Simulated assay, not measured.
Amino acid sequence: MKMSLSISKQIRPLLHIPSTTTLRHGPLKDKVVVVMGATGTGKSRLSVDLATRFSAEIINSDKMQVYHGLDIVTNKITDEERSGVPHHLLGVVDPESDFSAANFRTMASITMKSILSRGQLPMIVGGSNSFIEALVDMNFRSKYECCFLWVDVAMPVLDSFVSDRVDKMVERGMVDEVREFYKPNADYSRGIRRAIGVPEFDNFFRVESFCDEETRARILTDAIESVKMNTSMLARIQLEKIHRLRKIKGWRVHRLDATDVFMKRGGKAEAAWEKLVSGPGAAVVSRFLYDSETVIRGGVTAMRGTVAPPLLATASH
């Protein structure tokens, strides 16, 4: 399961995201925040934290969460955890269809324009770096200025968390959820069936009604362990892609180390999250949005940095 989101519901401020002309540098680009990280690191939690501070709307970039259904398996953020923040491209695609990086690029671009037209900040959030890369690499930077945040957790710590999370997903009914979706001889290379947590149970569903209780329990345990192993492998692949984007493509990515948060409990974990992740992330976004630069808004000259302090004061935890 996801890390618990502790943000209380609140009235979200209506803010103007700077996008106009400067006195010295020509047209300003519209601004977009991108939250990256391996599965289970707290991307959803950070995105909601930031969205409530900076009046943002979230665009999902997880290639499995874009599909409708299997909410437990794909670990979709719940309505309660969204804290009133609008989420887009989440659970909207036919689970039997294929949704490509090109499809994401088209839909995300349309959604960003809609969000900006409402004076809100677009925030792209998810672990599918191939989707993010496909979007950013297609003339994106000619129109948008990007702020990349990376929530990182040391792999041994994340492995332990992933294992516990899968156990909790099973407790919430993951096996029954997949069973209802199960089809013999299904194509696990298409649609939502590619999601980790679906193909691993194929053998179990095939034999569960024909074997004794001990054998059934063993096969189920093996399937659950496969889900854990494959999820950890996915996290490593996602991490490698982030390193490649930084080192080879030269993306400027702000790393937020959440490792210590995962090693604490209760109030200490909450305090560590604010100190190490949410607070520093908000500071990066504030500098990105409200850097001190002279601008013209409707013929009125102003400094872009003047509204940052009141924004941070709107946070509620």
Rank of each mutant, 00 (worst) to 15 (best):
D152L: 07
V85A: 06
G173K: 09
G173C: 11
L121H: 06
I132T: 12
L121C: 04
F104N: 07
C211V: 15
F205I: 04
R141S: 15
R118G: 06
R165K: 08
I192S: 03
K168S: 12
N103H: 14
L116C: 09
E96L: 11
F210C: 06
R118F: 07
S128W: 02
D94R: 09
S226G: 14
P95W: 04
D159E: 14
D212F: 00
R118M: 10
S209Y: 02
N139Y: 03
N203E: 11
A186T: 00
G191R: 00
F201S: 05
N139A: 10
E213H: 09
T221S: 15
Y182L: 01
R179Q: 14
C146P: 15
D94M: 12
P184S: 09
I224A: 09
Q120H: 11
R193M: 08
F99Q: 03
G84R: 00
A102Y: 10
N185M: 08
S163V: 02
T215Y: 05
L89S: 01
K143C: 08
E208H: 10
F131V: 04
V151I: 13
V227N: 05
R141E: 15
V198I: 12
Y188M: 06
G126I: 01
D176F: 02
P122N: 01
V162M: 11
V178C: 02
Y188W: 10
M174Q: 12
P86T: 06
L158N: 06
N203F: 11
A154V: 03
P122R: 00
A186I: 01
L158S: 03
Y144V: 06
F140S: 08
T221R: 14
S130E: 13
V175S: 04
E225R: 11
K143Y: 09
A217V: 01
H87T: 04
C146Y: 10
H88G: 02
G84Q: 00
L149K: 01
S109D: 15
T106V: 15
D137K: 07
R218V: 10
S189E: 11
